[in-house]
Amino acid sequence: MQQVFDGHNDVLFRLWTLSLDGRDPVAAFRDGDGAGHIDLPRARTGGLAGGLCAIFVPSEGGLVVSHPATDGAYVTPMAEPVAQPQALEIAKAMFGIAHDIEAGGGWQLCCSTAEIRGAMAAGRFATVLHLEGCEPIGPDLAELETFHAAGLRSLGPVWSRHNIFGHGVPFAFPMSPDTGPGLTEHGFALVRACNRLGIAVDLAHITEQGFWDVARTTDKPLIATHSNAHALTPVARNLTDRQLDAIRESRGVVGLNYATTMLRPDGLDDAATPLSDMVRHIDHLVARLGIDGVALGSDFDGATIPRAISDAAGNQALIDALKAAGYGDDDLSKLCCDNWLRVLGEAWHEGAANDTGRHQAA
């Protein structure tokens, strides 16, 4: 079985919502609750050995994406902004759940690639904490330092809404990712601080202008944890060939998003999406980025995924489809794990003292 380290999932958000109903998030993950896409038993069944687990603060009232039932365009209004004090409290709760799961034996929080490899070798789910949208961080970036001490090693400045750091792209089809301004002055400072601390910067939800703003500011490889090819599925969240070429030049990585709306030529939210659409995007990404620049970023627990996979237990169905398409063992090792570890190691400037120490809860 091919071990997979995943570039993005929303299991912490799902577990946090469970906790609001008085349920035990530790038991739900560790013992398996059969809900959503990921828990530890299903991850082990499907060879999902770890990944970047997102801390995501929802807008009040959530977000309803209006997908058409048949071929057709849609534009979802941008989600409402979230106030920093409210976002900070929710983020702290998710950090707490992440640390509780580690204490309860459900996974291992990892701050270096050595820790990821060690956890995977020992059969422990290797979790890297990722902040999806930086609403919990204030303009002086004090919370960034606190989160880093608590194990944060990856963040996206924005989700698909605007904040003090930059502008996000809407959920829309067909649409260019060039939908508005990019980083703010606070956003430029955030990217520089991430470079200093060794926190990966994710470009998955930012506008095209924001992408280029990060590209000219960062001294690290460009990363999009869960995005696909705009040339194949022209949803605003996907990356143009010009963006893919820039990622290749930086020695960066793109993680294939399993969301059907980002895979299908018609952009539909339909679980009856064939695995051939996933392979088609992998082929295009490999053609633009090279085999060293492509990985997996499932968006488990955050999107509708193909029924042929269904949840984490079915993850090997994609691996089998890639094998049938001609990808060999060395290619699969890169796509499923090694490319993430290489680019994360570069983002974390491994070897520096502050990247290998243990973490304390926020």
Score class of each variant (00 low, 15 high):
S160F: 03
G47K: 09
A361S: 14
E115Y: 05
A87E: 10
T218N: 13
G36F: 13
F147A: 13
A91E: 05
G106A: 06
R23K: 15
A103E: 12
L190T: 02
F56D: 00
C336W: 00
D330Y: 05
D213L: 08
A93I: 01
I206H: 01
P139L: 14
L197C: 11
Q316K: 07
H281N: 07
H148V: 00
V235L: 03
A79W: 00
P58V: 03
G166W: 04
G36S: 11
L289E: 14
G22F: 13
Y74F: 15
Q3F: 14
L318S: 10
H148W: 13
D6R: 07
D10Y: 11
C336P: 01
P81L: 13
L88N: 03
G47Q: 09
A272H: 09
A200T: 03
R264N: 04
G168V: 07
T225S: 15
Q209W: 00
G328E: 12
D33Y: 09
I282F: 14
H230Q: 12
E89P: 00
M78R: 11
H130Q: 10
D299T: 01
S310L: 13
T217G: 03
I319S: 04
R42K: 08
A114T: 06
A353Y: 05
L332G: 09
G302F: 10
G138P: 01
V169W: 01
A43W: 02
W16D: 01
G156V: 04
F13G: 09
P81R: 03
D299R: 04
L296T: 05
L152T: 07
G180T: 05
H130K: 04
H359Y: 12
E115Q: 15
G297M: 05
R14M: 11
S19A: 15
H349M: 11
D266G: 06
L48P: 03
H162C: 11
R358I: 07
P221R: 01
L275I: 03
I206F: 11
D24K: 01
T184R: 03
M175K: 09
M1W: 05
Q3V: 06
A200G: 15
V235P: 00
A347I: 01
S250M: 08
D24I: 00
T17H: 09
D299S: 10
C111G: 15
P234Y: 07
G151S: 04
S333L: 12
G36R: 08
C110R: 06
T240C: 13
D21S: 13
I309E: 10
E145N: 04
T261C: 14
A312F: 10
A347H: 14
I38M: 15
N9V: 03
M78N: 06
D331P: 03
F56T: 01
W348P: 07
D140K: 08
